[in-house]
Nucleic acid binder design. Structure first.
Lengths: 143, 143
DNA sequence: TTTTAATATGTGTATATACACTATATTAAA
DNA sequence: TTTAATATAGTGTATATACACATATTAAAA
């Protein structure tokens, strides 16, 4: 198959997925700016709050992020006083939990997140929204 | 509406889109590793090669990336000798072009990119692929 | 019991991303 | 002609991302 150079910018799934992620991230970040939280940080806090995972590795898997990346993200959240990374337990695993301040800022962020999410859903329409949603899921799980 | 904390990790479009972008990016990066190029750099080179844009700002719009981010990406590519950022022209605009080395490495990267892209397409199936593709497009344009 | 494999984490380094702010060039308005 | 608006670009700073490598813990195998 001969790929025209001109097509790459439109066809490359890596570029396309990054374009979408960048655009969406900027919108959520802008909305959260007033409370000094980024969407990346918000989602980490929210995932910790669920208590579905009990190690950094497990949380990294859950969020489809490199473990070492998450380590750095967690260090930042800890330095801001929003979470506590517990002592080493079974096989050095460490459990994370929100501080009171972390829980407080998460609560404040949720309505902002909700309205941003709703705005986007409105702009796209529910059908498209659901399609994108399942599509992103497939993309993440395909690899 | 009351959103359960537990739902955020699954519903947040920013997280979902980033998870997909991260996963896809890692796969393309791994494939390109042998030639010392990242997928981000590959797409920038490819977009420059098309000559569809004649300023950093225009290229940034085309790739849905912050202009200042692209500036940094371009500086890196220039320092590697893969592109040349031209002199300031109309309203300070600068045109980019590939060096011989940049064109050479782009050529070497294309077959790798193609097979990675095909692999992913196979894993997802063509219908899903097309659905994801249009979904990402909508996500990017919705904002 | 010693060795090996599996699990979990942290650090060094490089790159990607974007906002706030600053500077320059060109056109339009006063 | 001076001034304001618009278009383009760069830098300072902070955060996000991931690979390569090193380390510690625990279970399984020899």
């Amino acid at each position: 198959m001969t790929t025209e150079i001109k097509d790459i910018g439109r066809k490359c799934m890596a570029l396309r997925s990054r374009m979408a992620a960048r655009t969406v991230t900027r919108a959520y970040d802008a909305a959260l700016k007033p409370i000094g939280l980024r969407i990346t940080q918000f989602t980490v806090l929210a995932c910790i709050a669920t208590e579905l995972t009990d190690s950094i590795s497990a949380l990294a898997d859950y969020m489809a992020v490199e473990r070492t990346t998450l380590t750095r993200n967690l260090q930042l959240l800890e330095s801001k006083g929003l979470i506590i990374i517990g002592e080493e337990g079974y096989r050095r695993s460490r459990k994370m939990r929100l501080t009171a301040e972390g829980a407080s800022i998460l609560s404040a962020a949720i309505p902002i997140w909700e309205s941003t999410q709703e705005d986007l859903k409105q702009k796209m329409g529910l059908d498209e929204w659901n399609m994108v949603s399942s599509g992103l899921n497939m993309l993440t799980k395909a690899m």
